[in-house]
Design a protein around this nucleic acid. Structure first.
Length: 140
DNA sequence: GCCAACGTTGGC
DNA sequence: GCCAACGTTGGC
């Protein structure tokens, strides 16, 4: 079964990659956007999520792995909102900045550039391979 | 801190 | 069901 790739965003002042590495796992909750929610629901155990720092840093810093598929968001009473469990997978040797992404023709159609406000987005296998390559890590 | 872009809400 | 108003996000 093929692995799917995603991109999740977090403001480092709220939750940074460093904190994630220290905690070794996290519940990706608080998503209140239908499109993002649908992506969370589609995540399968073992899928990989690029971890992007928004507002500060503006770069992809690492890759997380889906450890727990979607369940009701513990921060909401409404069972329509879901969260997933993530664990750190790999930290990029070279963080990939938004500018780097913009400048690479092969990444021009990334959702990050098209719809910068979507907090959980799909990434194609091709894009994932390019990001990993530029970041100096192997996906597998 | 500002502002543009987008999603959501609510009046009609 | 449309669309204006509003709130939020995120880059600069």
């Amino acid at each position: 079964m093929a692995v799917n790739y995603w991109l999740v965003k977090s403001e480092p002042s709220t939750y940074s990659w460093n904190q994630f590495e220290i905690e070794k796992e996290t519940v990706w909750d608080g998503i209140r956007n239908f499109a993002a929610r649908n992506h969370l629901r589609a995540m399968k155990k073992g899928d990989l999520c690029f971890f992007y720092h928004s507002n500060e840093g503006l770069c992809i810093v690492g890759i997380a792995k889906v450890a727990k598929e979607s369940f009701q968001d513990p921060t909401s009473e409404d069972k329509n909102w879901v969260a997933v469990g993530l664990v750190p997978y790999k930290k990029l040797k070279t963080p990939l900045t938004l500018q780097d992404i913009r400048e690479d023709q092969r990444l021009a159609s990334m959702v990050l550039l098209k719809n910068s406000r979507l907090s959980v987005q799909p990434v194609t296998a091709k894009e994932a391979a390019i990001i990993a390559d530029l970041g100096g890590v192997k996906l597998a």
